[in-house]
């Protein structure tokens, strides 16, 4: 191995100078005690936040019209979830891209969700003793696409002018079975039954909240609450916590990209931000290997302050 030229940002001459007593075990022990006491003090003084989650029930109770407006888009397949693309469903053109590549499309559909069936029809069919509803659901299911589209469109138009004076008041229209279906879905949501129906798993036990969370996220209620709490993506929300608690300050750079073009205007913003962050993380990992970057510490000379006693002693020894 031929010796390469010494580079001060890569190589050192190992220390052969004086050593001093240094008690690592004591340092670690004292650190632990100090940190433990600090944590106990912070926990006692500030506690921790715990805002109640939004449920389909709380949403349908607080904003019944918004719930139905969202539900009908789940039925007719125009909601954000219904048109999401992979990993939830096949939607032509959906899926964020980095240049020409859509990693989401490459990975494919692994969590299949059909909002018409999963969010509306299947939950409605779990309602017991509702023969009138069941027959309306069958009528909707057996209708042709053109018929369904016409009912859906008529209901979407009517629901835009709906109100809720204690019950769902929708202007009349030629929306066939959709009216009964939506009224029942709203009643189901307001009773809490829809929260359960969307969780139903063949094993009784469930830990997967994908369906109710996607449904809730399609509406405005949770999003409005988040905006009030400064948690929206365009409010640097990723690093914020509810209330006045500190959040994930370490996400400052990740959330910063979402505030600036082209990331905040691109339809593939998430993919672009992730690509940039993965690249920057790689750069941070490889700092010791990157010429220029690894010279910054030598140029800014903060090390002269950190090791000032050492540099003082070598100058005195020299004089």
């Amino acid at each position: 191995m031929s010796p390469r030229r010494f580079k001060p940002d890569r190589d050192v001459t190992e220390w052969t100078g004086p050593v001093a007593r240094y008690d690592l075990a004591k340092e670690v022990t004292i650190s632990f005690v100090v940190v433990l006491l600090l944590v106990i003090a912070f926990a006692a003084i500030f506690s921790s936040p715990d805002d109640h989650p939004v449920t389909l029930k709380s949403w349908a109770t607080a904003m019944p019209v918004d719930f139905v407006q969202t539900a009908v888009t789940e039925l007719d397949g125009t909601s954000p979830t219904a048109t999401y693309g992979p990993p939830y469903n096949e939607t032509p053109g959906a899926g964020q891209k980095i240049g020409p590549v859509s990693l989401a499309r490459l990975a494919g559909v692994h969590i299949p969700i059909n909002t018409t069936e999963d969010f509306v029809i299947k939950p409605l069919l779990t309602l017991p003793n509702a023969p009138a509803l069941d027959s309306q659901v069958s009528r909707y299911e057996s209708a042709g696409v053109a018929q369904r589209t016409s009912w859906d469109a008529a209901y979407e138009k009517a629901i835009a002018a709906a109100s809720f004076p204690g019950y769902l008041k929708v202007p009349s229209g030629r929306y066939g079975p959709v009216g009964v279906m939506m009224t029942n879905l709203l009643a189901m949501a307001r009773s809490g039954a829809l929260d359960g129906a969307l969780l139903s798993s063949p094993q009784l036990y469930g830990t997967d909240y994908t369906k109710p969370l996607l449904f809730i996220a399609d509406g405005s209620y949770m999003s409005d609450l988040a905006a009030n709490l400064h948690l929206q993506g365009d409010q640097w929300g990723m690093m914020n916590e509810t209330g006045n608690f500190p959040g994930q300050a370490w996400l400052w750079l990740y959330t910063m990209w979402y505030q600036v073009p082209p990331f905040n205007t691109s339809s593939s913003g998430d993919a672009l931000v992730w690509a940039v962050m993965m690249l920057l993380t790689l750069v941070l990992i490889l700092v010791p290997f990157i010429p220029g970057l690894r010279s910054i510490p030598r140029w800014v000379r903060i090390y002269r302050l950190i090791w000032r006693r050492h540099y003082r002693s070598v100058t005195t020894e020299a004089t």
């Binding site: 500030f46 506690s47 936040p49 009030n228 400064h230 914020n240 916590e241 209330g243 006045n244 608690f245």
Partner: peptide, 10 residues
């Protein structure tokens, strides 16, 4: 109750 309540609007 936390000694200092941080749960009011941020």
């Amino acid at each position: 109750a936390a000694l200092i309540n941080l749960s009011h609007p941020g």
